[in-house]
C-alpha cells in the first residue's frame, strides 16, 4: 500500500517537472515540428530545359498558362557552300511559330515553315512531372501529337493527287530527367506516319529514338545536343540521322538559341525522317531560334 503510494507520488513529481521543462523549451523546436508538417509537400522540378525546344525538336518544357510564345527560327545554307555563298548565309529557310499555354500542362502550337511550304500544329501534354518530397517521380513525361500539311504544288499535277497525301502525323513521347541544377537528359521515342511515300520501297511509318540533353555553363547559358536515331528497316533508305549542337542564351523574356545542325527542316517529319545532310561531308547548317514570351491570359 505504502509502496504503491510512493510510486504514484514519484510519477506525479516526474510529471510536474516534465511539464515545467516543456515550457522552457526554445521556439526552435516548435519551428522544426511545424516545418516538418508543412515541408511534406510535393516539390516539383522546374526548368529542366530553358525553353520548349532543344534545337529542332521539343523539350518537356511547356509555356505557362496564358503565355504566348512567339518563335522565329532560321536555318542558313550548309557551310560547305564555301565563301561564294558566305558559308551558307546567303540562303535561309525559316519557321514562324506561335505556342500558347492553355493550362500549365497543356500547350498548343502552330507554325509555318518556308521549307516545302509546310504548316504544322501540335499539342504538348504533360503526363508526369518529376518531383520529390511527398511524391517521388523520377522523370517528366510528355506526349506530343503533331500534324503537318505540306502545301508545295504537286510535282505532277496531271496525275490524280489526293489532299490526304499532303498530311503527315508524328507521335512523340518525351521522357526527361533533371539530374542536377545544370544537367538534364531526355529520350524521345518517335513514330511518324506519312500517307504518301515518295518511292514504293519507302515505308509509310518511320520509327526513331531521340536522345538529347543540356548542360548549363552559366546561369543564363547552356550547351544543348540532340540526336535522332532512325531504326533500321523503319526508315527511308537515303535519309540520315539528325544531329545538332547548340547553345541557349537567356535574357529575361527572350531565349536565343544558336546551333549547328545537319537538318534543313524544322518540323519533326522533315528533320527526323527526311534528312539528307551529313556532318562528315560538311552539310552543316548554322541556325538560330528566337523566343519571346507575352503574357496575354490570366494566370490565376
Amino acid at each position: 500500500m505504502q509502496l504503491k503510494n510512493k510510486i504514484l507520488l514519484g510519477a506525479c513529481t516526474l510529471f510536474i517537472s516534465a511539464n515545467t521543462m516543456g515550457q522552457q523549451k526554445d521556439s526552435t523546436d516548435l519551428m522544426n515540428t511545424l516545418e516538418k508538417e508543412t515541408g511534406t509537400t510535393v516539390n516539383y522540378t522546374t526548368a529542366t530545359f530553358k525553353t520548349t525546344r532543344l534545337v529542332n525538336g521539343h523539350t518537356v518544357e511547356n509555356v505557362g498558362k496564358g503565355v504566348l510564345d512567339v518563335k522565329i527560327s532560321h536555318r542558313f545554307g550548309t557551310l560547305n557552300k564555301g565563301g561564294y555563298e558566305l558559308f551558307g548565309l546567303d540562303n535561309a529557310t525559316m519557321r514562324m511559330g506561335l505556342d500558347y499555354g492553355i493550362t500549365p500542362n497543356l500547350m498548343v502550337g502552330i507554325g509555318r515553315s518556308t521549307f516545302e511550304k509546310t504548316y504544322d500544329a501540335f499539342f504538348k501534354i504533360k503526363i508526369l512531372r518529376q518531383s520529390s518530397g511527398k511524391r517521388n517521380m523520377p522523370v517528366t513525361l510528355s506526349y506530343i501529337p503533331t500534324v503537318a500539311l505540306k502545301t508545295l504544288r504537286w510535282a505532277d499535277p496531271s496525275r490524280k493527287n489526293y489532299y490526304s497525301s499532303r498530311l503527315f502525323y508524328t507521335h512523340q513521347l518525351l521522357i526527361a530527367r533533371k539530374f542536377s541544377a545544370g544537367t538534364s537528359l531526355q529520350l524521345m521515342p518517335t513514330f511518324i506516319h506519312r500517307n504518301l511515300a515518295a518511292l514504293k520501297a519507302d515505308p509509310n511509318d518511320i520509327l526513331a529514338i531521340g536522345i538529347g540533353g543540356r548542360q548549363k555553363l552559366t546561369k543564363r547559358l547552356s550547351l544543348n545536343a540532340e540526336y535522332y536515331y532512325q531504326l533500321p528497316g523503319h526508315k527511308i533508305d537515303s535519309s540520315t540521322n539528325s544531329l545538332s549542337i547548340g547553345i541557349d542564351i537567356e535574357t529575361g523574356g527572350h531565349v536565343f538559341q544558336l546551333h549547328f545542325t545537319n537538318s534543313v527542316g524544322m518540323s519533326e517529319r522533315t528533320f527526323i525522317s527526311e534528312n539528307t545532310g551529313k556532318w562528315e561531308k560538311g552539310d552543316i547548317l548554322f541556325g538560330f531560334n528566337i523566343s519571346r514570351v507575352f503574357n496575354i491570359g490570366k494566370r490565376r
Binding site: T38, T46, G64, V67, G101, P104, G252, V293
Partner: peptide, 18 residues
C-alpha cells in the same frame, strides 16, 4: 519555402528560382 513565392508571370517565377 522560396518556391512558394508565386508571381503573375510564370517565366518570372522560374527565373526567380533558377
Amino acid at each position: 519555402i522560396i518556391k512558394n513565392f508565386h508571381f503573375k508571370k510564370a517565366l518570372m517565377e522560374e527565373h526567380f528560382n533558377e
